[in-house]
Design a protein around this nucleic acid. Sequence first.
DNA 1: TTGTTTTTGAATGAATTTAATCGTTTTTGA
DNA 2: TCAAAAACGATTAAATTCATTCAAAAACAA
Lengths: 249, 249
Amino acid sequence: MLTNERHEFILNMLAEKQTIKIQDVVDATAASESTIRRDLTELENQQKLERVFGGAVLPDRNLMEQSVSDKSTQHLQEKIRLAKFAATFVQDGDSVYLDAGTTTFQMIPFLKDKDITVVTNGLTHVDSLNEHGITTYLTGGLMKSRTGALVGAQTVQSLQNYRFDRCFLGVNGIHEEYGYTTPDPEEAAVKRLASSLSRKAYVLADHSKYNKVSFAKIMDLAAAVMVVDRMPDDLLAILEKKTTVKVES
Amino acid sequence: MLTNERHEFILNMLAEKQTIKIQDVVDATAASESTIRRDLTELENQQKLERVFGGAVLPDRNLMEQSVSDKSTQHLQEKIRLAKFAATFVQDGDSVYLDAGTTTFQMIPFLKDKDITVVTNGLTHVDSLNEHGITTYLTGGLMKSRTGALVGAQTVQSLQNYRFDRCFLGVNGIHEEYGYTTPDPEEAAVKRLASSLSRKAYVLADHSKYNKVSFAKIMDLAAAVMVVDRMPDDLLAILEKKTTVKVES
DNA sequence: TTGTTTTTGAATGAATTTAATCGTTTTTGA
DNA sequence: TCAAAAACGATTAAATTCATTCAAAAACAA
């Protein structure tokens, strides 16, 4: 059995069973214990797994994967559907700003085959963007560990160097009077600037955001096209007086 | 069996089994081992397959692999020792630039209890910095998927906003005459600028870098303090005429 | 046929991977 | 807490694979 095969085998075994014992791997591969040990240290160096006494476990997931599988991230399927819908607005040749956040994150797989350049302030986005072969620029700035977003004066300044065809933002609240809002004023500032640098701005919001108001105002409703999933007709009628609303489904 | 036929045969076999062993091909074709080896070398040059020890695999499984391909634990341990040593130069209150790269990455755990602010262009660094509770700014810029570094004009501009007390750089070559060198000119430009913005610059290099010259020059030896592990006395004598050398051990 | 070029196969020593050993560290369970 | 058992890293020897070289065989051209 070739080294690569063994490595693949070990990783598959690990993916299937979550944790593996060295002896089990030895028995399953007919290689010596030394060899398996060497394999495990090598795979650990590649961050493909994490060694523990007696075997190995799956590595720590990154921030976005954690939050995606987190119970607090509700409506995942709906977010994915919404993200897919939003991605249809992106065209070849576009330069796109992708805001940090879980919904925009879900757009990435659907951008795969488009010939675009992406700028993002979402640290958690870059690995995925990279995996999907998308040319990616990151804004500078201070890392907010909780959300994995870059914010602050440096982020604002970085952004000034770009102009976008389209910009996709996540928000926490949508309200007829108070506009788009989000909890963190610094993130709000970044979102506001990004949209102002963009020919066309889109706000992605699932129905749980309707008529909510969060602390920091980003901008008025009219400043962006609203991309939403199902929405009550009466609310839709009200919002459509303020801005364009694209309803998925 | 004609050469072309053999090549076809090998590629089919590979397409079917994903991984092939040289001996299996020899048995299946009744050609000699030498011949099969020649075939594989040739096919690899045509990028039709990738050779591995003992056989061959399909090419470009994913190009992420190559970036983290260092498998020797030996090497890694030495890097950790060197990184630990380098970290002793950091003092409370410092603002520190941490270059992208594996050696500087290993410094992070040793910076844990220091009261510092870190700026880095290394995407791979941020999670670890975050885990260790270190205030971190990221430069902006284009993401190079191979090295996980941010480079380019935006990175340069981001950097201009900072001034550092100390800056820690990795390099690929150290040479008395040609100075510090690295393969990528864009990364070289970033390193050069970072060191010029720093009160004190340090270059981390293990012994495998001595007397090597890479494509892009970063700067002269005198522009940074050299932090190295063991070093032959005669070479040390030469380099110490050019700059300060801190030897770990 | 004869001479030339190309391909093949075998041999060699170097390089790499694997297996086994041994002293040390960690875990387990009484 | 202590001792036995299991797992560990490091070292070393064995086995396997590799690149190189060179001569024989085959293909080719004149």
